[in-house]
Amino acid sequence: MAAYIKSILVGTWSLIAGLAITLRFVFKPVVTCQYPHAVPKIPDRYRGHIDFVYDPATCSHKCIVCGMCQKTCPSGCISLEGEKLEGAKKKTLSVYQLNFTTCSLCGLCVEACPTGALTFSKEYNLAGFDEKEYHFDLIKRLQERP
């Protein structure tokens, strides 16, 4: 009998102690980020989808159409084409399509690029109605960038 009453008392006390702890949290500062009113801080190393690095020397990208990124990509989401312009010795990039819907954001392409032409974008607000919105044309994106 004594043990029974003791278990009731101990049990009730444990509930009160728990309530006191949760009550204390009411008066503590808010820990959640108030998105979308507050913009989360995106760290420098954030791995968004890939993007070209702007090269001020050529006012363009640094891609030499070697195809390494395409070859390393485990998800096969990069397709690129180069063409030989008249008078030029090497190929120039004409198409660079990223199919972001299958990208696994692994970053292998960025590491594979011999000229450091690729980087990660900091974009995280990605939502859309159509799959086509996520077939990015990186050349166009670079041109449109301010």
Binding site: P43, D44, R45, Y46, R47, S104, L105, C106, G107, F120
Partner: peptide, 20 residues
């Protein structure tokens, strides 16, 4: 996230070490 750049599927280590 500040070291790996990702929050869930980190893909952080590489053969021979770590990239960052």
């Amino acid at each position: 996230e500040s070291v790996t750049g990702s929050r869930l599927t980190f893909s952080y280590f590489r053969f021979g070490g770590v990239p960052n």
